[in-house]
Design a protein around this nucleic acid. Structure first.
Lengths: 350, 350
DNA sequence: CTGAAAGCGCTAACAT
DNA sequence: ATGTTAGCGCTTTCAG
């Protein structure tokens, strides 16, 4: 069927070992034979067989990305960064998108133990002792994206700082009753954002009222969904006194929150300002203020780390932390928003 | 290092063949030895080695999806469908997202010839004779998503019908000068949508004026980008007489078009109505009318077809065509829109 | 610089 | 029902 090194060895009058050497730029092969081999290979349209190579080399050209919630478009952008960087190194990407964390463990097992992937990019997954142990006893390197553990290479955004800046921004625009819509606290990013939130309030001497903090009970995608945001805002709106500014742990939730606000006839940002986190593509269109994560870049860096470790398994782990950038739009700045976004368009025909 | 069938064979006092049989539910293995083997395997934490299996079986557990423009969130939704269905059959998904069609061919070659993937899902790629030939001489089955060729299994949306219904909707709401913003005509879906567009105009006896049709020259992502839509609308707005209704070949482009309309102070839909195609998630939030494609379902069906063919390579090809559903929102219906979407919210504070 | 040969871990005849 | 034995296509000592 497909052409193998035997075919090209025969046709080029060399042994298969030589052919193999040529393709691995290995040892000393005379320029002449090398050229001949290459020519024949080209002529026959030879391509090395992936599985055979993996078996012999004891490592694959596959990297697995395990992504707990791809519906969160944040991750889609990161994937692009992964892809681009991976392609440069001739690696292929296996994608597992899961809905629950149990599934994460299942997929992890799949990718790790069958020797399918020679590296794993693990997204937004809390590092329980069990997971840490599992990961450590596997030989493949792992890079954590959007979560952290000192024993692994990590890339993430400074969520605490982001939460802090979000609240600071609300304060700057004059909000005094500041609330928060939290995803599930098991999510480390969400938890960190909350810490930043509380810190900023303390610093400003503003009250931190529990009734203005709504925490998602929904485990589904850790509560990073529009539905969760919608429900949370409904809850918030039912309070005796309402906050006049709300920090939401993700843009996706903020979208749902906006919907609830709209249905309740609450003016944004005048009666209530809203700021999210991520800066997914949608946000620009709805004029949602937010903290932008450099998603594409995060993807590239994640792969860099993975490749680095594949070459030097013993090098010390490192953690790259990006600072989120404040993006001011209508949901906090009203008409004065620097970035108007789309939301403006219907105003014209009203 | 890792445990192999030899280990478990030794420990269970059987041959490796028997172990293999157990794991492949193969021939007749006595219940007793089977139990014993399974027990030992469990104890040792055995997992078959993916590459070794692939090499011996001459087929992998990997399916490749080649996606020319993942930034088009349409495809992200389809991927979910793929994933879910694939997981049911214990297959893994390799994702290649490319920006140009040249890259598509490169990736195709990668996936196909190295025997990496045992099946390919090819997205939105025009079936040139060269590609058809390439695909046909490979042994792996291919399913075309969002494109068509009689020699392959396909799943797509009825784009002609969609274009037709879009225009019909514009006509129903009273538009008489109907224009269109086209992606690159090399894109089959775009071309088909245009055919539907023209057909509907003819049927209604409305003029089909070339100056109201703007075709993207941009090859990048076949012109399915916001930027392309933005530029196209600018062009359209510069015409002596403007259309009062525009059908755009994708929601992504429509988003850009809306931006241009906003900047020009054109009232939507009163001065100009707009309708897109796809119904990506964003569309609901900006109140964009559109034709919805059943993305998740398309993904599942695509995998069904692929698996079907992997089992019966000779079965006749089939083409599943979904009918797009009209979704009416503010961009064509104004305040009367059934689905209000989010665009409403800023109205409240104006 | 090049060839021979022994695996890598598993499957699949072919025997028994 | 189970064992033996060839491979699958490639890498990698070890000789020459």
């Amino acid at each position: 069927m497909s052409v193998t090194i035997y075919d090209i060895a025969a046709k080029a009058n060399v042994s298969i070992a030589t052919v193999s050497r040529v393709f691995n730029n290995h040892a000393r092969v005379s320029p002449r034979t090398r050229a001949r081999v290459l020519a024949v290979a080209e002529e026959l349209g030879y391509q090395p067989h992936a599985s055979a190579q993996s078996l012999a080399r004891k490592k694959t050209s596959l990297v697995a990305a395990i992504i707990p919630m791809m519906t969160n478009y944040f991750f889609v952008e990161v994937i692009r960064g992964l892809q681009d960087r991976l392609a440069e190194s001739d690696l292929d990407l296996i994608v597992y998108s899961t809905l629950t964390l149990n599934e994460v463990d299942v997929q992890l097992e799949r990718a790790l133990q069958r020797g399918l992937a020679s590296g794993v990019l693990l997204f937004a997954t809390p590092m329980t002792p069990a997971r840490v142990a599992r990961l450590q006893r596997s030989s493949q390197p792992v890079v954590l994206v959007d979560s952290f553990h000192a024993d692994f290479d990590c890339v993430s955004t400074n969520n605490r700082e982001g939460g802090c800046r979000a609240v600071q921004h609300l304060i700057d625009r004059g909000c005094t009753r500041i609330g928060m819509i939290m995803a599930h606290p098991e999510s480390l990013p969400a938890a960190d954002r909350r810490i930043g939130f509380e810190q900023a309030l303390r610093q400003a001497g503003l009250p931190l009222r529990e009734e203005w903090i709504v925490v998602s009970e929904d485990m589904k995608q850790h509560g990073f969904t529009e539905e969760a945001g919608y429900q949370a805002m409904k809850t918030l709106l039912a309070r005796r006194t309402r906050p006049d500014g709300v920090f939401v742990t993700s843009d996706l939730q903020a979208l749902g929150a906006l919907q609830a606000l709209h249905e309740a006839g609450v003016a944004v940002p005048d009666e209530m300002a809203l700021i999210g986190f991520d800066d997914i593509k949608i946000s620009r269109y709805v004029g949602l203020s937010t903290l932008r994560q450099p998603m594409y870049e995060m993807g590239r860096v994640a792969v860099d780390k993975l490749l680095g470790r594949m070459e030097q398994p013993e090098r010390p782990t490192s953690h790259t932390v990006f600072s989120p950038a404040l993006v001011v739009r209508r949901s906090t700045a009203g008409e004065q928003a620097q970035e108007k976004g789309f939301l403006a368009w219907p105003l014209d025909h009203t």
